[in-house]
Design a protein around this nucleic acid. Structure first.
Length: 607
RNA sequence: GCGCCCGUAGCUCAACCGGAUAGAGCACCUGCCUUCUAAGCAGGAUGUUGCAGGUUCGAGUCCUGCCGGGCGCGCCA
């Protein structure tokens, strides 16, 4: 891992694809060397050793906590261990200085050539810079948006959609084999309400005798068209027919309206998702899971291990429902897997609870090869997490893992004022309306500017403002500025090949300004940031990283106004210009790469 | 009553597996456009990280107990 001697400005830089991983390997190698020399005991666990940029840049380029973490297992004083390690690290060519500080930190200052090597590496990697094999091709299934197909998506759905979609992209980026999935909740009472609502609109379309507004009626106008369409398809065929005749329930109008409504709603939902740039490849129907008998499979497997029994649950303490009656039910021993109570699988009428098919569905996902499953749910499902995780652990006998990300509410505002929404009053804001107003890229980016489990304010006015206050604009502006420089360079310096691979061969050692080096260090963090964001299931980290990167670039840009020797384009010095274009190109590349993970189109110019 | 999530500057939020003096933006004040887009940049003030303990070289971060807010708690999904 140690590289050949290198002096700034002379040697051809080596490519460094993941600089901080490389630096950690370097530290670990020296620790092993110390162990071979008998200074340290053999076989120390270096998992907790961190090599990262210090918060205060005055401390140097990189810092490691190795001495403090290993002091106790090694039976040494942290400072002594630090001195020994720093002595070795300081002898490495790429390290210009290794100093022990504070309780035992080792601060390293690196030769500028190291950062130039990083820059060359990222340019050669191009769009692949940041990609890694952390996942080693392991399968992960990401399920998101999953909803009843009863109406259009609203803003809340958009958050889950984007978080799920970007988690999937992140996991792909770090080497997982990803399946994006949607679970269609098409088996419950909501679908019956949908069917009755469709039938109502159908009769309306046929000018038939008006029937009373059905229970749970979906009042939205979108069903009027569905009623019309059913009339066009089937004519008056369902008018004199029963809802669900006893001898053959599926011959009635309800079955027809359920299926017709379901298809229409799913088409609408998929169109909305497409408008948001979300494309899941697998859609699994709850109803199909039930009909395929997967629930029985799941239950048999649990039954065989004594995890199913008939029992009576106590009412929740302090909040007994009005109509509470103790009833014996089929229960799953969720408490054996960390849940608070055992969970019912059947309703009193004998039909399945929501939990039963969902359990079966997760078994199905596991059978399709996903040991790691990620579900993105809304805040109102928080209380459901433990039981589903318990079910996955039980059904997969501990081989599967379910990670659930809960998305808090989105508060829709306009110029600081809450947008009043009411389904009944018809002032409900759909996802489609928001996309039409501000654009899908803005929706996607803004949804990632908060941790998923924190509430999010979405101000329709603010998100299209052109100011530093608006992260979408600010990041896009940095990218546009990079592209602008490159456009000007193409005119003024036709001799400079702007292909990233060619720019990687520019005399990068000419980049010596502290802000230029700072920008390179920041770019060098990108691969590590992606891995961290994926491992923590936190796509919002990418948004904050891009914002910081944009700020660093804007700063360097403006610095060139006062100090003309820092301008990117230097008529008097084509070599220096080429080196700076390499840096600008790399900034554009990383921003574009981050936006690609987000599913956001980088802009070439601000308009 | 129980479970989960949250509580950080006046406001909105960061803080990578426990790391060094907790950082940005907004708002407020002061500078910077004959220049690659000033839609920007530089500088100035801001903290008992809800409270009280504990763990340790080190805690916003982990543990315990309180306080405050959100979500949920059999036949909704």
């Amino acid at each position: 891992m140690r590289s050949e001697p290198r002096t700034a400005g002379t040697a051809e830089p080596v490519d460094l694809m993941n600089p901080f991983k490389d630096l950690k390997d370097m530290v670990v190698a020296e620790l092993e060397a110390l162990a071979r020399d008998g200074v340290l005991p053999a076989g120390l666990d270096t998992a907790r050793v961190a090599v990262e940029p210090p918060r205060d840049p005055a401390h140097g380029d990189v810092a490691t906590n190795a001495a403090m973490v290993l002091a106790k297992p090694a039976g040494m004083k942290p400072r002594d261990l630090a001195e020994a390690l720093a002595g070795r690290l300081g002898a490495i060519d790429r390290v210009s200085e290794a100093a022990v500080a504070g309780p035992g930190f080792i601060n390293l200052r690196l030769e500028p050539g190291f950062w130039h090597g990083c820059l060359a590496g990222m340019l050669r990697a191009g769009a692949d810079y940041g990609r890694s094999d952390l996942g080693a091709g392991r399968k992960v299934n990401v399920e998101y948006v999953s909803t009843n197909p009863t109406g259009p998506l609203h803003v809340g759905h958009a958050r889950g959609a984007v978080v799920g979609d970007v988690l999937a992209a992140l996991f792909e980026k770090v080497g997982y084999d990803v399946v994006r999935e949607f679970y269609i909740n098409d088996a419950g009472a909501q679908l019956e309400a949908l069917a009755r609502s469709v039938y109502y609109r159908y009769r309306e379309a046929l000018k038939a005798e008006p029937n009373p507004i059905p229970e749970g009626f979906y009042p939205g106008e979108y069903l009027i068209a569905v009623g019309e369409d059913l009339k066009k398809t089937d004519g008056a065929k369902w008018l004199g027919v029963e809802e669900a005749p006893e001898e053959d329930p599926k011959s009635g109008w309800r079955e027809a309206c359920t299926n017709f409504g379901r298809e229409a709603m799913m088409k609408m939902i998929k169109d909305d998702l497409a408008a948001l740039g979300v494309h899941q490849e697998v859609f699994t129907s709850e109803r199909a899971i039930i009909e395929a008998g997967v629930i029985e499979d799941a239950l048999d497997s649990l039954e065989a291990r004594g995890l199913i029994y008939t029992g009576t649950l106590d009412p929740p303490k302090g909040k007994t429902p009005e109509d509470w009656e103790p009833r014996p039910q089929t229960l799953f021993r969720a408490t054996e897997f960390g849940d608070d109570v055992d969970r019912p699988l059947r309703k009193s009428d004998g039909s399945w609870t929501y939990f039963a098919p969902d359990m079966a569905y997760h078994l199905d996902k596991f059978r399709r090869g996903a040991n790691l499953m990620i579900d993105v749910w809304g805040a109102d499902h928080g209380g459901y997490v433990k039981r589903m995780q318990a079910a996955v652990e039980a059904l997969t006998e501990g081989r599967g893992h379910l990670e659930v990300r809960i998305c808090q509410l989105v508060k829709l505002l306009r110029a600081g004022e809450p947008v009043k929404m009411s389904k009944r009053a018809g002032t409900f804001v759909t996802l489609r309306e928001v996309i039409d107003e501000v654009g899908k890229d803005v929706v996607r980016f803004i949804m990632l500017t908060r941790k998923n489990d924190a509430p999010l304010e979405f101000d329709l006015t603010k998100v299209v403002e052109q100011s530093r206050d608006n992260p979408v604009f600010y990041v896009q502006y940095a990218h546009a500025r990079c592209r602008s420089v490159l456009r000007h360079a193409a005119e003024g310096f036709p001799g400079i090949d702007q292909d990233p691979g060619a720019l990687a061969r520019a005399p990068l050692a000419r980049l010596t300004d502290s802000e230029e080096l700072g920008l390179m260090r920041r770019l060098a963090l990108w691969p590590r940031l992606l891995e961290g964001a994926a491992e923590a299931y936190e796509p919002h980290r990418v948004a904050f990283y891009l914002y910081d990167l944009a700020a660093a670039f804007h700063s360097l840009w403006t610095k060139g106004k006062d100090e003309t020797q820092l301008r990117f384009l230097r008529e008097d010095d084509p070599d220096l210009t080429a080196a700076r274009l390499a840096l600008v190109r790399a900034v554009a590349l990383v921003i574009a790469s981050g936006l690609e993970v987000f599913g956001v189109e980088p802009v070439e110019e601000m308009r």
